[in-house]
């Protein structure tokens, strides 16, 4: 019996049930502006997926990638292409009912996974040559590749080019976003506590020593890159199907930087740190919208305050909020060793 698979599937079912419950609850909360809050919650979720997936590449494997937005774009456009041009027209021919609803969910899941796979393949294509470079060089090359992907999309008329793609079906919701939040956290958690994850960490710590221990460093760098890109693609797919609109401008390198800031702020290599930073930064960016009105300012000081907060945090806690630890480590301090 493959009871480990059964247990995992049961876990997924439980997670799904809980998420459905929460999403009904969120829809029910009768406070004004709840639609806005729901939107923020979903944005947080998408940012968590981005940060945790980038953390696999930057934090665990130690490869400084600046092209995350590019892979996000690949996933977003691939999944939107499928749902917009194929699945939505097909679904429209069916009669309304639970059958169509179920089929729509299944097709959406398929589209997201296809988007993730396309992003993963893009990650592989980009990673294979560029991961032979180190540090700054890799950062520049990935930055370049991210931009190339964006410019390519900008020039494909079929998917809207510079006009963007409007009318992407609104398939994404709280459930799907947080479903993948759970998946990316579990995957990344299990990876880093396996020999594969240890190989990532070894590459980050010392490539020469890792090779001397029989770790094929290029192989593991590419693997981390592909897995991270896959989830960036999923995040892109969710974003497109939530905003109902896609535009290449959404995937500029500033988007990659947002994700990098989350990973660095949370603490490189810390999964819970990435989650925490994604939540804090998204909430901060939204919360600061009120500053202009509250103080009757003529221009919006949002980004200035945001920048100051980042500078202060990096000044006061350069290792990030959690360093390379996980949230749990702070509650059960291991005996011995320095903290």
């Amino acid at each position: 019996m493959r009871n480990w698979l059964v247990r995992d599937l049961a876990g997924i079912a439980v997670i799904s049930a809980v998420l459905v419950g929460i999403s009904y609850f969120l829809g029910w909360i009768p406070i004004p502006g709840m639609a806005y809050y729901n939107r923020v919650i979903v944005t947080i979720g998408i940012n968590i997926i981005l940060a945790v997936s980038l953390n696999i590449i930057n934090g665990h494997a130690g490869q400084f990638s600046m092209g995350h937005a590019g892979f996000m774009a690949v996933g977003a456009y691939t999944s939107a292409y499928l749902t917009y041009f194929h699945f939505q027209p097909f679904l429209a021919t069916l009669a309304e009912g639970p059958g169509r609803f179920a089929l729509q969910q299944a097709l959406f899941l398929g589209a997201l996974l296809a988007g993730g796979a396309a992003a993963g393949i893009a990650g592989w294509v980009v990673g294979l040559p560029s991961l032979r470079l180190r540090g700054d060089y890799l950062a520049i090359v990935t930055l370049g590749f991210g931009e190339i992907i964006r410019v390519l999309i900008l020039n494909i008329d079929k998917i809207g080019g510079a006009r963007g793609l409007s009318g992407v079906p609104a398939f994404a919701n709280f459930f799907w976003v947080y479903f993948f939040v759970c998946i990316v956290i579990i995957v990344s958690w299990r990876l880093v506590r396996s020999q594969v994850g240890r190989a990532f960490l070894a590459v980050r710590e010392d490539e020469i020593a890792a090779e001397a221990m029989g770790v094929n460093t290029t192989h593991y760098k590419v693997q981390a890159f592909v897995i991270g890109s896959f989830f960036a693609g999923i995040a892109g797919g969710l974003l497109g199907h939530y905003l109902v609109y896609l535009n290449p401008g959404m995937f500029q390198f500033t988007k990659s930087f947002e994700a990098i800031v989350m990973v660095v702020l949370g603490g490189m290599g810390s999964i819970s740190g990435s989650v925490l930073a994604a939540v804090i930064l998204t909430v901060a960016l939204e919360g600061l919208r009120f500053v202009k009105e509250a103080f009757g300012l003529t221009s919006d000081p949002r980004m200035v305050i945001y920048a100051i907060v980042l500078i202060l945090l990096m000044r006061l806690r350069p290792q990030g909020l959690l360093g390379n630890r996980e949230l749990g480590d702070f509650f059960r301090r291991r005996k011995g060793g320095d903290r």
Binding site: R2, W4, L5, D8, I186, V187, R190, L191, R193, S194, Q195, V196, G197, R198, A199, L201, A202, A210, M213, G214, V215, Q223, I227
Partner: peptide, 22 residues
């Protein structure tokens, strides 16, 4: 454990699924 890397052969899929090999 990293020292023994060449002897612990399982894939990322095994790691993610916590398979028997893992």
């Amino acid at each position: 454990k990293i020292g023994g890397h060449i002897h612990y052969k399982y894939s990322w899929a095994d790691s993610v699924l916590h398979s028997i090999t893992f």
